[in-house]
């Protein structure tokens, strides 16, 4: 087995905003650590001077002319909203944070 990095499943669940049961945490910790261990293969490759490939082909981004199109009616934008009021999305109380 290759190196099995330590993972902080609590922190990752917070970053991902996913509630996990105790069971899920245990299972995921082990699986994610296994998978990361499997990823260690990459650490052996010499990548010095290799350009990271972010896109399958090299091209410049197309630019759109600054011309507005008709927007949607609020009802269309909110058609699937779990809760709405006064043409706005209702969310449970937001406890303020930076």
């Amino acid at each position: 087995m290759q190196d099995r990095p330590e993972i902080d499943i609590e922190k990752l669940a917070v970053l991902a905003r996913i509630e996990l049961t105790g069971e899920e945490k245990t299972a995921l910790s082990a699986q994610v650590a296994d998978i990361l261990g499997f990823f260690q293969k990459l650490q052996e490759v010499d990548v010095s001077g290799i350009t990271p490939m972010a896109h399958p082909f090299e091209a410049a981004a197309p630019l759109r002319e600054d011309v507005p199109a008709d927007p949607w009616a609020a009802s269309r934008s909110l058609a699937n909203a779990p809760a709405s009021r006064d043409n706005q999305v209702v969310v449970p109380k937001v406890v303020e944070d930076a």
Binding site: L42, Q43, V45, V47, I50, T51, P52, M53, A54
Partner: peptide
């Protein structure tokens, strides 16, 4: 690193 290997 994965993106670099992707190039390779």
């Amino acid at each position: 690193r994965a993106q670099q290997v992707r190039t390779l």
